[in-house]
Design a protein around this nucleic acid. Sequence first.
DNA 1: AAAAAGTGGGTGAATCCTCATTCATTTTTT
DNA 2: AAAAAATGAATGAGGATTCACCCACTTTTT
Lengths: 200, 200
Amino acid sequence: MIRTADKHAKIIEAAIKVFSRKGFFNARIADIGKEAQVADGTIYLYFNNKYDILISLFEEEIGKIILEVKLLLDSEAGDDPRQMLRVFALHHLRMMDDRRELAEVLQMELRQSNKFMREYRLTKFSEYLDIISGIVKQGQRQGIFRGDVLPGVFKRAFFGALDETSRLWVLSPDHSYSIEETADQITNIFINGIMVTDQQ
Amino acid sequence: MIRTADKHAKIIEAAIKVFSRKGFFNARIADIGKEAQVADGTIYLYFNNKYDILISLFEEEIGKIILEVKLLLDSEAGDDPRQMLRVFALHHLRMMDDRRELAEVLQMELRQSNKFMREYRLTKFSEYLDIISGIVKQGQRQGIFRGDVLPGVFKRAFFGALDETSRLWVLSPDHSYSIEETADQITNIFINGIMVTDQQ
DNA sequence: AAAAAGTGGGTGAATCCTCATTCATTTTTT
DNA sequence: AAAAAATGAATGAGGATTCACCCACTTTTT
């Protein structure tokens, strides 16, 4: 055999392709098997069922994204919460743009999955959002962000804004605005919106 | 005959309940029929297929929401774009809170539908978003919103923020913050973020 | 005005197809 | 030659859609 090319990873990769193409419910296990060049039955050696593939996909991929963005924050944002928000936004949008297929799966399926798998907690996703509220809290401690902003509301608003904006590209890949421009626009709105100002 | 108790509306109403409970794909036509107290076959007298129910639901319900919010904007926001954003946000969040089942369907299924029904355009949804960009443009004309903010980006960011925030309640109905408080938080961030300021 | 036809919305059992999952068998690894 | 991994045909459940039939009501004929 040509290298035990980590079947698990191969299947996840294939699932991203197939789910992004057809959506979770319309995707057949056979499609994933074919894409991964693996027999249908093999998939069940690595995953319990179809949902399990989706959940594993979420947790693993978001896990990677968290690592990436934390690294970037450490290396490029110094101690400035404004810069941290910028870095976060830019990384998020770049990632969505670079990895269209993954982006599509996250955007389309992540919400639903919450629902019909109520038992399952998307722990990694929560962790991702908590990076944002962490930044806000830090800014408030430093006195440069207004204290009356609720970090728990802000994190959702900020993520929602990024997510909704990037959906534009996923659906119609011909940007009218550049990633950098868009990230700037959004971050500026939020930063101005949350800063301590002298007037008012 | 007992006055055709508008079967169409009855089916849509039932579909909202069923889709919100089980999600589009897990919902059975039989479930909708049962909920609407109508035979399975009857549904096909009013809709072409299962997708068609979902699409009709979207367009009709969002249509109603558009009418409501436009009325409110006329009657309560005067000519002040800031106030208009407030009214829009508050109405959106209130609506999501009052009509949980509809909210759930919109949040969970609206995204996907775009995808597996690529042919279909969600015209009403676009119209809804364009209310936001209209407000921004008006504010820019009046010189109270910064001219460098792109209305097409802003509308998505603002909607995304509202949408993501309200998902919190839909999934776990025990608010920690009130609707009004949350609407205020979000609107404040965006208004401060977009205002023309003297400093900087 | 009674009887006979006609109309069409409504019905729900039957059809027919699509997969997720299983497992007996084969192939590869140790 | 065991043990482990992989295969893919067969199974069986589920569910969207169809369609032959019903019946309450309206229109036409007698």
